[in-house]
Design a protein around this nucleic acid. Sequence first.
DNA 1: AGCACGCCGACT
DNA 2: GTCGGCGTGCTC
Length: 806
Amino acid sequence: MARYAQVIVDVPAMQTNRPYTYELPQALQAQAQVGMRVIVPFGKGERQIQGFIVGLTDEYGLTIAPKQVTSLMDLAPVLNNEALQLADWLAQKTFSFKIRCLQVMLPNAMRASYSKSLRLLSADELPQELNSLFAGKSEIEFDESKLSAQQLNKLAQMRQAGHLEVVYHVKDRAKAKLVGVVTSLVDEKNYAQFKAKVRKNAHKQLELLEFLYQNSHQKFLQTKLQASLQLSLSQLKKAAQQGWLKLAKQERYRDPYGDKMLQATTPKQLTAEQQRAVEQIDQAITAKNATTFLLEGVTGSGKTEVYLQAIAHALSQGCSALMLVPEISLTPQMVQRVKERFGKEVAMLHSALSDGERYDEWRRIERKEAKVVVGARSAIFAPLDDLGLIIIDEEHEASYKQEDMPRYQARDVALWRGKYHNCPVVLGSATPDLATRARAKKGVYQQLNLTKRINGSSLPQVTLVDMREAVKTAPAPDFSQILLDQITKRLVRKEQVVLMLNRRGYSSFVLCRDCGFVLKCPNCDVSLTLHMDTHSMKCHYCGHEEAIPKRCPSCDSQKIRYYGTGTQKVQEELEKLLPEAKILRMDVDTTRKKGAHERLLAKFGAHEADILLGTQMIAKGLDFPDVTLVGVLNADTALSLPDYRSSERTFQLLTQVSGRAGRADKTGQVVIQTYNPEHYAIQLACRQDYEQFFFYEMNLRHLNNYPPYYYTIKITVSAKSEAEAAKESFAIKKGLAQCLSPQALVLGPTPSSILKIKNRFYYQLVIKYKQEPALEKYLQELLLQSQSGEKKGLMVVIDREPVNFL
DNA sequence: AGCACGCCGACT
DNA sequence: GTCGGCGTGCTC
């Protein structure tokens, strides 16, 4: 029983980034607990907002009168002690507002939505101008954007005079789904009595009564009953009135998967290597050791089976398990495998779920109805409170880093939770992140190796095509003769082909052959991308759209052409070369709709197409036995990017796609087209030689002072003018020089690779350092100060260990 | 973020 | 002389 609550309010700003003390009304004092959501008044006026109780006290150390908590939004805390501690750590580590860190722990639906309404206090004072607005009602919704300046003016006057008030609403969107349930009340005792009252020719009623009698005291889903007996709602209601049945609402989980029945699977026989890995992990689970394992295994070496058996062991110890996969919708096969093994014990959290579905999955976890959670990045916050194991599959994936506030790295959160629960964390990959692998080498992580492919199938045969030469005789700009021949061969043999277009930093734009003019976005510093489906030019950053020019806007030449390579263009090329081939295209455009991804893959799996053409997204986790050829059209577009990780990315990607070919009995072939055939990342990816790549790349990182030898922090400054952004970033550099030791390095400031986005200009600095005790404080201070510049349109963003330097 | 207070330009 | 612009500062 405390009198006051410490509340973090839902105002993401630097000045409000601290707890506020509210008085708890008598009635709430017994219920209030740390970790509950509340509604509190904040600021002048009657504005109401959501907040989180982070502490309870009996002291109120302020001289101003306390405000009172309006209401509690929860009956029990939605954030436990672990979540609150984790939020603290996150806020500090990622330079984020506390409120953002608390919100990221919960499903979206638990974030309140706000609205305002206008309530008329004395209706006779209403001026004519506002008559139509209120239309006789005493309370209307208040949407400032829909009102004219004059109307707002009049309203303000009314308010001043006390004839009108603004009412603030905080709505909890977290609602359980309710379904109608019908319970039969007909039995031996009343059946005859009911029947006597029904007219003889009322067939429908008799039929219903008969049905209810046959199913005495049973429960039915209202919708199903209506459908099977062809009843309207009013007929049901009438029956309820007569006492035949009871209509009620019942809570029901939204079911994102449908009632798809899955065949239960049993653990598979393990190879000696897998066995060893599972044993080591099991041991750590049983002993409650927060060991971090690096499970390094080539594609097809059976990492998933190791995960599944380790999860089973955690469950057998009475613990729960958490498994992260990169952007889950991309790997439906993986999800299915987990569901097949653990059935309804599994909860899924991924981006394709609606807010409601996500909320339901979250509650299933919280109520301990699901003990295995599979999900993408944000699932790392799943409310499992007896964790026995955390797995991060494809741990090198960049998608584990969140790109906006709070900019967390899910791997780091996993390690934190592992420590909290004393449970092991397994990082799995065929091509581990260099930092991870380096830690394993130093013995910080324990390495487990899977060196053999599970079915003994050999690694695919890889052919490098030097496009500098091949392009001279190529039948189409993106297809060398060698690749085309190979594709044709598969078509004849009725085998399947996967073609990957490395689109990073590459898209189709329009260029004038005469004057070199490129059509650019008026708001952003990027060229517009051609979209054949809508017949327009689009900006990928701000959404600006315009018509495709027929003549050059600069020199009026007609020689304005499409340049670059997009999947659409490649598809057209391919259709011309191989008119008989059936091609499926998979890219952002064709997979935007929910479930489109799965449908495309299912189609390809069912042999409805010969060729699957796509971007990076096809490289991950899909596994089709009849694919015997994988072609990479442009292996090196990412290599030229000004990012120290471009080699690592290219290596990972090529290694991964190569693994897609020939997994079963048929040996696969991989054809890689490149303009840099001698580049080490490409050469070593061809040989699937991670070890060699690791040594080579580590050496380069060492020479150039990059991670994992150094930590990095990126500071991005943006302003309405380039000069301001530049000026501010130079000032920050000056400040940094004061606080950093001579061992630290500061790169920049430089204009960001895309200088202008949505009419804002971006400059950035990168700090590379090993040990800087004063840095963290300095950066916190910098953020605090930047607040004053924010009104002038200056913004500062701090990103720890950024995933891209662009 | 949002809301009020407060100090300077263009109107009745 | 007032209305109303938006720069500034605070929110338990």
